[in-house]
Design a protein around this nucleic acid. Structure first.
Lengths: 238, 238
DNA sequence: GGAATAGTGTCTTTGAGACACTATTTT
DNA sequence: AAAATAGTGTCTCAAAGACACTATTCC
């Protein structure tokens, strides 16, 4: 922790930032919120809605503040730390350490957050094959690809890798779904994260047998032009 | 990333440190290297061999420097970042951010590093049941339990959780083993990480069938008082 | 030969994949 | 009735666990 040679006060200090990636799933694809940079460097580029950390502020509090002020999001059900990036030479302003986070939310809440704010948008992530590096393409709702600022494409690739690790070992990815959801919605969400299709039958068996994961509600879909599916709910609240 | 209201230079800056946990496996248990603190705060306590990061220095370089100067380790085959801790109010010297890492090495190299240095020691980690939080006990080679400095017991618990995540999905835990090892050594290492015993037969089948993980060498144990086991080697070099 | 651990062969159980079949809704 | 998706039952196959058995070393 400390070092006997130098006094504590002598050490140089970096700037500290947090960069949260807000994720959701919709239409069989993963989406994230990006914020258009208002100042140099990389002014005008789409970036994760990050912020510098204040003294005495917890990292998670800085994440919540960034999401509130830049992405119009007041609550996030699940937030997890991803990775600390040492941006030596990568930010022209100097020595900046960025701690990346990801947050998971139902699509409806993200849609509400971006509606009416021109500086915030939803972008879909596309991947080559089953690679888990940076996303191959980041495309807006108009279908146009964008190049995110800084190393934010790399961070987004790491989010997906982490989500794939969590998928079968943790209920957190259910935070991407609304309170009530069908097995079809759940499976297409899992498929969006994995980037491949899953066997319908064994998926149903696996998740319905796991009572600690989801539970049937006895309620059914409304207003669909086919047999309505039963709605399920997370067993553990988030 | 940035913020339009304030100038970049106005932001307060934390001190930045790295805290690597050097892990090995021996005698069916997980071990780590701790370093006796020479200065306040928590002088005399056993702590992870960390260091403050210099300006212009990559985090991984700071980890390598800390391991070299404090733990007598010149090379580490595998190093991975764990987590960034925001120590608001936890370090009396001020605002300190610590990025925890873990490194994996064969027991022999760790033994050589601690031999003859009174300020560095090997400590075994013990856990209650199959919990993956902080270790229940951190005990020295003399059997005496110690209370690590700061939140370092918590960091060690997180290392074990990460190792368990990596165990079946990555070859990295093989960095804990020497160049040549028996299937018995490999299995007891896996058991030490998981905190539970594994089926001998299915373990053998699983790992020997995975040619991308380990390969038989045709060499055999020497100087054992029973049938010598074949020695295996990692397929992918570290 | 006895003790000890290494390694093989095989039976059983479990879960995933495949697929045929039934069920329920709208048009 | 046709179209569409929801949900069930069952067969097959692959991997894990259990366990009996053989193999090779030192004493």
């Amino acid at each position: 922790m400390t070092n006997g040679q130098r006094e504590f006060k002598d050490y140089p200090r970096p700037s500290l930032a947090v960069d949260p990636a807000v994720m959701t799933v919709h239409d069989g694809r993963l989406w994230t919120i990006l914020w258009r940079r208002q100042n140099a460097p990389q002014q005008g580029y789409w970036a994760l809605p990050g912020a510098f950390v204040n003294e005495g502020e917890e990292l998670e509090a800085a994440v919540a503040r960034a999401l509130r002020t830049k992405a119009n999001l007041d609550r996030t059900s699940y937030v997890e730390q991803l990775f600390a990036w040492n941006k030596v030479g990568r930010d022209p302003r100097g020595w900046v350490i960025t701690v990346a986070y990801f947050a998971l939310l139902p699509q409806k809440q993200l849609q509400a957050a971006v509606d009416g704010d021109k500086n915030v948008g939803l972008f879909a992530l596309e991947f080559d094959g089953s690679s888990s590096g940076r996303p191959a393409r980041v495309v807006g709702t108009d279908g146009r690809p964008v190049s995110p600022a800084f190393d934010h494409a790399e961070i987004l690739g790491m989010v997906v890798r982490r989500l794939r690790e969590r998928l079968w070992h943790s209920p957190v990815v259910l935070a991407l779904l609304p309170e009530r959801f069908t097995l079809h919605e759940m499976r297409t969400s899992y498929e969006a994260i994995l980037g491949r299709s899953l066997n319908k039958d064994s998926f149903r068996r696996k998740v319905t047998n796991n009572k600690m994961l989801i539970q049937p509600t006895g309620e059914y879909q409304q207003d669909v032009d086919h047999r309505p599916a039963e709605l399920f709910a997370r067993t553990i609240e988030l």
